[in-house]
Design a protein around this nucleic acid. Sequence first.
DNA 1: TAGTATT
Length: 390
Amino acid sequence: MHSFKQIINVYSNSKPIFEQFGKIYELTVIKDKYTGMHKGCAFLTYCARESALKAQNALHEQKTLPGMNRPIQVKPADSEGRGDRKLFVGMLGKQLSDTDVKKMFEPFGSIEECTVLRGPDGASKGCAFVKYQSNAEAQAAISALHGSRTLPGASSSLVVKFADTEKERGIRRMQQVASQLGVISPMSLHLGAYNAYTQALVQQQALVAQSAYLSPVATVAAVQMQQLAALNPSSIIATPIASITPSSARLANAFEPDLMFNFINPPTATYPAAYGLVGQPFPHQPTLVAQQPQQLQQREGPEGCNIFIYHLPQEFTDSEMLQMFLPFGNVISAKVFVDRATNQSKCFGFVSFDNPASAQAAIQSMNGFQIGMKRLKVQLKRPKDANRPY
DNA sequence: TAGTATT
């Protein structure tokens, strides 16, 4: 009851490493809310403050655990901290180094950390994090520096503000995922209001974010299921789950919690290319054509797989129509018809799937779908030899 | 112009 509690951040699997500095009151491994996977860090509470300080001195940055590419971090948790003191700095010139930035911010207080963000090639991203020892120092830097000058190579004046909260970071990441998948395209602007389709896309993005550690195939299957459910509650189809292959299932199983060993090795360190949310999010995504619309050939699918869409917004291009119909299956062609003389859309087009069920799902969900003042007409394309009485 | 992680 009278013991002093200190919380420490730590990358580690092993309680024994920490027990040598004193009695542990509590060890909380941080896990993903949805997958149950540990996130490679934990909060450790000692019974005595002295133990925490000893552990920090002995371990912080002193040792790199197996499978990790950086030394272990052992430091007081932010909850032990002194309020908001970390700044995000934007609109830095790309040639500025950590040291340059530090010099710029030093006059306002003691800097605990100063890092310019860089891409994989080492090029500056033109922004940085600066952490002061106190909130007052951070505040002083904002007052003095925000908007105070425009650095060479920056497109507007210097930005100095408190770094995002955890919640804001989540939103930001979601937006990044969305833009990488290309789902918040100009189409969102045409659709305007928050309708069933945009809602489905938003839910898809949330699901993708939650599924970061699932196999790509499982993720795509889950997303498609979610999309169908959101768009058309009566058409929840059981097929997507069957498309999870044995190999991807095994990969997913590799993430089963294994505290004694796995804990030292965050999943992002083990499978960065396949499971990270940067670069190519899902290399095995069956609808990969979405990322290369310019390579999509205009061709027809088998009978019953081709649909006719009328009352498209004037501005809709092939790729926007493609994106609109991707949730229903593998699109092999998407073509908006254009007037040869004016190069203007004729407001109708054709989409071809590789199977009739996708075409039917698209018709079910999208026929009568309102965009602006108009409603889409979506039906099967007439066979070429059909009689046309008019 | 948003990092390797935060009960």
